[in-house]
Design a protein around this nucleic acid. Structure first.
Lengths: 225, 225
DNA sequence: AAATATTAGACCGACGGTCGGTCTTATAAT
DNA sequence: ATTATAAGACCGACCGTCGGTCTAATATTT
């Protein structure tokens, strides 16, 4: 095979991009290293030069994703002109904006993500959310407690709970979409989100209508498709 | 190898018991089918005569476990002489009694369960909890809502949330025990349980002191060892 | 020219799972 | 009482695939 040499970072990114696409369409377990290198036209040796294992590759891909999440969140959390509650609402709408912007993509993405062969992706996502996003939310909650907006004696634990509620929410969402979008599912989805809002507000000790997670656009976009 | 023939149910149970032990000590991924059959002294063919795959075997093992959980819970939930809140508290103490009764076993069990190679076990556990235990809790909450004890417009969703909070709680618990039981961890564990209690009560719309999850015995047993 | 970084691809052991076939046992027909 | 029949428990060689290793060759840098 003709040797094609590229700068380290470039090649690494190429591998990650290709692998990402394959993982997100065919699944993690079902995509073999041989497949990845076949698509790229590189050798096994080259692959294992950049990543010490297939799992290591996944770690880096998820890490990259979490990185983009954090870069989106940080400007909100650190904005001195916003009060804590506004920050939180902005955070939430930022997150759901992602889903609304391209619903089809998001639907297939969730569908794939929750297949059996992708447990590891979900696990890595969960772990990195806990290690890297929880601290950000903790700081936000702490600020809210200091300024008297939020009322909870355990900011860190509340942050953990909220983040994990979000992940649970994804689980529920995926279960809803595994069947056809019939009225029962729509009803359940709406109920779930309402409870999610309620739990959110109560955990932070704020009025129940101060957090809005469910928005008509989300429901509509998901169920129109 | 000498051929030893046994009754269907007996042999199947033997395989499950042996596999269970191996899975819970060495881990699911790290235990091969070859290992299982080696310990039992049976052939590959025999194994695949009883289970259509290794994963199928795991499904049955978890199913068996969930079965015991349900048989413990059902008498409480269906006891006509208990009010909903008492039922719930009994449920909770029943669950934690398991942990207190043999703490060493429980510790190693949790340690093993949360190793990388056991994601699938956790996933199966989560799924079966949602499909089989959630309905029981839903009925209990519905009863509480009807009798005016609990206050939530979404009993099913609240049940889902509570069960998944419990699973999250296990995650947090395992993370705490991955390091040494130093004062910081003890502090975090207690804080976590306090928040758990708080969230529990608030989700059900009952006074905050009506649910007791954390008990001194639990903390002591875990941190004494 | 020497040292280092990178790549090629043959190779490895382990794995989950398949398959053709054998042996035991219970029942039914003789 | 004996013999045919069939169900199903059981065997173990074998298969393809996988993640990962290793050595040698080639490019790049010094």
């Amino acid at each position: 095979m003709a040797r094609i040499s590229k700068e380290h970072a470039v090649r690494k990114m190429e591998i990650m991009e290709t692998a990402k696409k394959l993982f997100y369409t065919c699944g993690y377990d079902t995509t073999s290293v041989n497949q990845i290198i076949a698509v790229l036209g590189i050798s096994k040796g080259a692959f294992y030069h950049y990543f010490k294992s297939k799992e290591d590759l996944l770690d880096e891909i998820i890490g990259q994703f979490i990185e983009t999440v954090i870069t989106r969140i940080k400007p909100i959390v650190e904005n001195p002109r916003l009060d804590p509650l506004s920050k939180l609402n902005k955070w939430i709408s930022e997150a759901s904006a992602l889903k609304v912007q391209n619903p089809e993509l998001m639907k297939t993405f969730i569908d794939v993500l929750y297949k059996k062969e992708n447990i590891l992706i979900r696990e890595k996502y969960r772990l990195q959310m806990n290690s890297r996003v929880v601290p950000e939310l903790t700081r936000l909650i702490e600020e809210g407690v200091e300024t008297g907006t939020f009322h909870t004696p355990y900011p860190r634990e509340t942050a953990i709970m909220i983040i994990n509620m979000g992940i649970t929410s994804n689980d529920v969402l995926s279960n809803t979409f595994q069947n056809l979008p019939d009225p029962v599912n729509l009803d359940r989805l709406i109920k779930w989100y309402k409870l999610y809002e309620l739990a959110f507000a109560r955990l932070l000790g704020i009025p129940e209508n101060s957090i809005r997670i469910i928005k008509d656009e989300i429901i509509q976009t998901f169920f129109r498709v």
